[in-house]
């Protein structure tokens, strides 16, 4: 049987649509351009859901926060390496967030996201270490501020964005 021209066009449209969906991905995560001077080192110590049926993933999100405490999502960097360098704006408050995603693959029926955030005004000349782990249901995120890349630095208390006060 021969397909008419319009039939081929329909198939081609379908294939292109499928490819487009695959290329963009099913998730709607906006990627962070990460073009600023790298002043944050995100260390992923462990990323294990503890279950063969659930995958664990992690992203580092950056949000702008204005004087009215509104958050603007600048994007996310996928934490798919043990250490990922990120550049965040200096001298202005932002919100940084580690989001652990559990499940959501072909075999799991549930998905959930654990978000740990803090407001932070990065200082010029300082570096920030973010230590993140998710191990079989136990997660931990710590943020350290340091004057040089090699020092251990000082732990920063995490301040959630809902503690923001309008100016």
């Amino acid at each position: 049987m021969k397909l008419k021209h319009s039939g081929w066009r329909l198939i081609r449209f379908g294939l292109v649509s499928i490819l487009a969906v695959v290329a963009v991905g099913c998730s709607s995560i906006k990627y962070y351009p990460n073009t600023l001077h790298k002043n944050v080192l995100v260390k992923v110590k462990k990323l294990d859901s503890g279950s063969m049926l659930n995958e664990a993933s992690a992203h580092f999100h950056v949000y702008d926060i204005d004087k009215q405490c509104n958050l603007v999502h600048l994007g996310a960097v996928k934490l798919d390496q043990p250490e990922v360098e990120v550049g965040i704006p200096v001298g202005k408050p932002v919100v940084i967030e580690v989001a652990f995603g559990i499940g959501g693959n072909t075999f799991s029926t549930t998905s959930s996201t654990i978000r740990v955030e803090t407001m932070l005004t990065a200082r010029k000349g300082y570096f920030y270490d973010v230590s993140a782990s998710y191990d079989d249901g136990i997660y931990d995120v710590e943020v350290f501020e340091k004057k040089s890349r090699k020092s251990r630095g000082q732990a920063i208390e995490l301040v959630p964005s809902n503690a923001c006060k309008t100016k």
């Binding site: 503890g50 652990f100 559990i102 549930t110 959930s112 654990i114 782990s133 998710y134 191990d135 249901g137 136990i138 997660y139 931990d140």
Partner: peptide, 10 residues
């Protein structure tokens, strides 16, 4: 022995 938070969704 545990230094972290439980994932309450698990």
């Amino acid at each position: 022995e545990v230094k972290g938070c439980p994932d309450l969704t698990a």
